[in-house]
Nucleic acid binder design. Sequence first.
DNA 1: GAGCCGTCTTTTTTT
DNA 2: AAGACGGCTC
Length: 791
Amino acid sequence: MSDFNTDLPLSARAMAARPAPYLDGLNPAQREAVETLDGPVLMLAGAGTGKTKALTARIAHLLNTGRAFPSQILAVTFTNKAAREMKLRVGGYLGDAVEGMAWMGTFHSISAKLLRRHAELVGLKSSFTILDMDDQLRLIKQILSAANIDEKRWPPRLLANIIDQWKNRAWTPEQVPSSEANAFDNRGTEFYAAYQDRLKTLNACDFGDLLLHCVTIFQAHPDVLQDYQRRFKYVLVDEYQDTNVAQYLWLRLLAAGHKNICCVGDDDQSIYGWRGAEVGNILRFERDFPGAKVVRLEQNYRSTPHILAAAGQVISGNQDRLGKTLWTEAQSGEKLRLIGHWDGEEEARWVGEQIEDLQRGTRGLQPFNLEQMAILVRASHQMRAFEDRFLTIGLPYRVIGGPRFYERMEIRDAMAYFRLAVSPGDDLAFERVVNTPKRGLGDKAQQVIQRYARAADVPLVQGAALAIEAGEIKGRGAGQLRAFLEGVARWHRAVLGLGAVPDDDALIETVTEPSTSGNHIELAEQILEESGYTEMWLNDKTPEAPGRLDNLKELVKALESFENLQGFLEHVALVMDNDSDGAEDKVSIMTLHAAKGLEFPAIFLPGWEEGLFPSQRSMDESGQKGLEEERRLAYVGITRAEQLCTISFAANRRVYGQWQSQLPSRFVDELPGDHVEVLTPPGLYGGIGAGFGGTGFGSAVEERASKADVYNSPGWRRLQTAERSQPKLVHGTVVPEFEEGARVFHQKFGYGRVASVDGDKLFVEFEKSSARHVMAAYVQEADASAGDVPF
DNA sequence: GAGCCGTCTTTTTTT
DNA sequence: AAGACGGCTC
């Protein structure tokens, strides 16, 4: 608690030499948000209004004016990316002084740091491990199976979610209200308590615990709380609309000392209610923090007036909001574009063509790079149609936010080995890899180990040793288990030899050798080697194996930026970042959720259909609240666009394998006609209803029903079908003749080479599909150059 | 312990 | 429709 001394306050001289450059170029609202330093401040920052600029300038201002030392500022974000960005930008203003900001980070990383200092107050040791969701689920499964629960009827996953939600609301098992008593077959609370007990025994906590334990400590130990309250003279929070109850309490407790809390957020962009975020936190701010100053950032620097008008019109349909109107000095720009399609495939095909048009430069617009375009979908399964299509036409794309590196099986296995090396008593890690690679230790052997461990009340490593001594592990398994245990002991000694602080219950006697710094990388390689883990994948003949070996190499490489294995493990537990590859020019595909905080010159928003968007499930589960969150999602989507925003919907879509006819989303009706150009051919969509002339498309439900009639009318079908089945010919009339070896393009199967010709039938070897017979009329001659689209 | 077959599920996702 | 998962058999 003495890090005050390490601060390097900026000298008056430094200030004179560098007179607040961070204030340059701020608009009046931003400036007010930056300069209102005392008391609670709510910075209501609309999309694209320069909130990060204001937030970082505020930090710079606090430091530059000498209001606080770097270590007296608590600056909290949700994601590591946001924390990094903040650090980078503050560093840009202040240089090295940013290094002193020890309390800038995510809720979870700061909580972990606090908890390591005071772990004993909640019955943990400061060396506690942070469980990932895999471990969490495994633990819950064990508890349920011990209680003879039918996993079919009461899935562990469900209990895990319930417990998470409870933790989000800052309820310890004792605090779960009786209204929740019927959860999980009336036994939710009981299992929650059992789960927490197990965690304590394992000296572990899950993500929710990081926050919850902190809150518990603050509430039960006023002296500890006071210490931090005094320390944190200024508190700043980003994305306040995403905070859950636990985070809210955490903040309120910590900020109660100096009451200088600045929350930045946008109630209109609250889209994480389903995982515990409470929009209420931001809506209630002025009541929670009396005397609060509310500053609205409404000048938008991102989008055209049409885009802002459309977004504003849609979001105005929500009841629960503080109210903001974005405006811009920009004058011109394209209207939003709206188009209906026959089905999802056609939608994908059309978007693909549009992207290629934009790339070339079309309709007087400047050419766009692929980098500058993104497709934002409501649900990830919608991505598939686009991926298929883009693969076919050879359009480079990247999916943002897929499965994360550290969630991959091989990475988790390797991490479990590292965890064992650091703390051999980590039972969850032991369970994960004791039989990976196969060591002939099946269910039976593992049960024996469990039995011995439980009987002697020791971790599984020791239980295993006892079981061997007792001769209870039979056959091949015995020798292999012994080798495994010896390996763990050896690796643990090596970790200690590298200068680690021995754990209280270090299981292996050791003579501490002089630290050989940097060798944790060698050690990691050695562990993967000696355990046979690398070999396991070398011998694996499945197509994924080489990729997994690459990932393991990457994992070892990632160790380079850490001093030891412990530091690395902490990092991985808390930093689940997924920085996708950078350089190449590619279109981005992502969910609307993943798009928050990003912006692109051109945005495509497909799938605006009732049931899909707004999502039926969201409305079923959360009713009006759910619908409003969906509407905020629409708002987020539209406001990602700088210049061009294209919304589309399809009349038919395959849902869980069944074809369904779809209705355009109610959000389509909510778009202001004045700012939207309808691309759907007249008579099909644009001609329906009275609407579309300033007041929107008309929002009555009956009217939507009438649109449905049109979609299912013979006229719509005929037109769509005709358009669809007409092969696109080069210049329209003549079916060209093909020779063997010619490179051709097929609407459905993509590029290929003609292998043989039989009259008007061709046999084509497709690049992205298998070889097949196709009619010559359905393919076009393609340029030999790769990736070129021939129309 | 591995592989095969039938059944079930299917939003959004960070730490 | 497709992928995941569980249970069955060898």
